[in-house]
């Protein structure tokens, strides 16, 4: 937002919108970071903080939607201003969804603690989570600095998360097949891995919005994808690997 508007109250409105959006984005990042951290530490008090704190993200999303709607109605924004508001409305909803996934991961982590969860071979939720946290940090940076190159880099990095998800999916199913008692744990782990994979997908949506904000055009090429978990039968894949 380099040049100031003649009408300073318009700048005030845009700043308010942006401040709340960044609060929401940083809140979503903090909650996701915590839920990954808590998966390792299994600290129930910290897990509950994420679960109970999600409502703050919901409220911030509502605030951004209301502010954006009012600015469109009262200011009739044009060009970059219009793009900024449309993008803010879209990515606020995405950040709110990331918060929902963090809460869901936290709920499942609580159950895993009850199930006396210990690591399954070949599955590293912490590593997958950390890579996704970096993606969220970078996408927020790309928005703040209007850095479309960084946004494209973030978008293309999702393929690593997809590959990890496919791999973990196979490993978790294999563990469940080896030891049926691990089925409840495995089921929750499958959902947690899938939730992280979806969060990374959402980050790519934000990256695409940042590109649109900066350039006024949508990224024309198709996003690289590598999550094959919905396309393969684990037994076959495992046999092929062996």
């Amino acid at each position: 937002m380099e040049n100031k508007h003649i009408l300073s109250s318009f700048d005030d409105d845009l700043k308010k919108l942006n401040d709340n959006l960044l609060k929401l984005g940083n809140g979503a990042l903090t909650n996701f970071d915590s839920c990954i951290d808590n998966f390792g530490t299994q600290d129930i008090g910290e897990i509950d903080k994420v679960i109970n704190g999600d409502i703050i993200l919901d409220e911030l999303d509502d605030k951004v939607q209301k502010l954006g709607f009012e600015i469109i109605a009262l200011r009739a924004p044009q060009a970059a201003d219009l793009r900024r508001i449309i993008v803010a409305l879209k990515i606020a909803t995405i950040f709110e969804r990331i918060g929902d996934y963090s809460r869901n991961i936290s709920n499942r982590t609580k159950l895993l603690v009850e199930l006396n969860y210990s690591d399954l071979p070949g599955v590293n939720i912490g590593k997958m989570g950390q890579k996704t946290i970096t993606m969220i940090e970078d996408v927020i940076d790309s928005y703040v600095n209007e850095d479309d190159k960084l946004a494209v880099k973030v978008r293309n990095s999702d393929v690593k998360i997809d590959k990890m998800h496919t791999q973990y999916y196979l490993e978790i199913v294999a563990s469940m097949q080896r030891n049926k008692k691990l089925a409840p744990t495995g089921a929750h782990l499958l959902f947690i891995a899938k939730n992280i994979e979806r969060v990374a997908d959402y980050v790519t949506d934000i990256a695409e919005q940042v590109y649109f904000l900066v350039n006024g055009t949508v990224l024309s090429d198709h996003r690289p994808k590598a999550d094959e978990s919905s396309l393969i039968i684990p037994e076959k894949e495992l046999k092929n690997e062996n």
Binding site: N3, H5, I6, L7, Q78, A79, D81, N215, G216
Partner: peptide, 17 residues
């Protein structure tokens, strides 16, 4: 009105000059 190419057009339609 959605993506002007010139900075001056952008500034004018956005109420900046």
């Amino acid at each position: 009105f959605t993506r002007p190419r010139h900075n001056q057009t952008e500034a004018y339609i956005s109420g900046k000059i």
